[in-house]
Design a protein around this nucleic acid. Structure first.
Lengths: 149, 149
DNA sequence: GTTCCTGCAAAAGATTTGCAGTGAC
DNA sequence: GTCACTGCAAATCTTTTGCAGGAAC
């Protein structure tokens, strides 16, 4: 039900993809890739900045947005918007690690989930849709156990 | 595949829900409800303002945001975020009219779709999730026929 | 050495809030 | 007549952009 943190070779794959796309390997990019690789769920730009400032090389907000844009363009990162008007980012993974989101609309709590039935339905649907599909995003809104009381 | 515009009693239901929740029936609220009832798909605050200014009573941006917040709180409107960092709003409908979204990430084109298999999977999942579910949102990203060429 | 990458500060948007006038009941 | 609703303008917050110095190749 709940996916675990992945420390696969995602960061390495992503770095390779960047190189192939003609990008250089700056410090900000490396720090961001490493951070994202450790996350089990999506982070906002603000959260990324805080996390980087605390634990390793600080990175400016502008660079975060620029790098995320590049990473999204080459398809290794996905933007997700979960209802608070804030954009979040997460590593695109296939198989394990791939997940969707439960959001508590009262307290803002965020939780990842996976569901094989849903993925099958999406996969079937993707073939019949007038779109060359890249990624999909499923968000379930509600009240979490604490807030529903 | 593509849902049609609904001109059900949604606006009336929503107006009743507002009254029950203790709200009065101002001009801005009425205009917004009528507009939303006619839409087949989600609108941004900006689009709502333009549409209202052209065809009927003009409504200020601030009022649009305030009204949408109320409508969302009583559960008749849903915020949807489709990847351009812009919040959109649409009427919550059950059965016909209920739909999800295809987004072309290149040109921004937005198209609604429905899928029974997906709804069944979501419905089964909703019972097993640690959340009192209110609404769900599915977004499929990709390149539309025109852009994919 | 050249070209790309970053940070800083300013700009551009979207959304929210304070306040005063208007309208619903 | 009272209290809620609305518009306007200002404030806040997120994201983008311009520019100059520093880093990768």
């Amino acid at each position: 039900m709940t996916p675990t943190t992945q420390r696969s070779g995602w960061a390495e794959q992503a770095a390779r993809a960047l190189t192939e796309a003609g990008y250089r390997r700056g410090g900000a990019r490396r720090a961001i890739l490493e951070l994202l690789d450790e996350q089990a769920c999506a982070l906002s730009a603000q959260e990324i900045q805080r996390a980087l400032g605390g634990r390793r090389r600080a990175v400016s907000r502008a660079s975060i947005y620029r790098v995320m844009e590049e990473l999204e363009a080459i398809g290794v990162v996905q933007r997700v918007e979960l209802g608070q008007g804030i954009v979040r980012y997460e590593a695109v993974r296939r198989g394990p690690g791939h997940h969707h989101h439960l959001v508590c609309d009262r307290c803002g709590r965020l939780e990842p989930f996976t569901d094989a039935g849903l993925e099958r339905a999406i996969s079937r649907l993707s073939d019949r849709v007038p779109l060359k599909v890249s990624v999909h995003e499923i968000v379930i809104h509600g009240a979490c156990r604490v807030c529903a009381r």
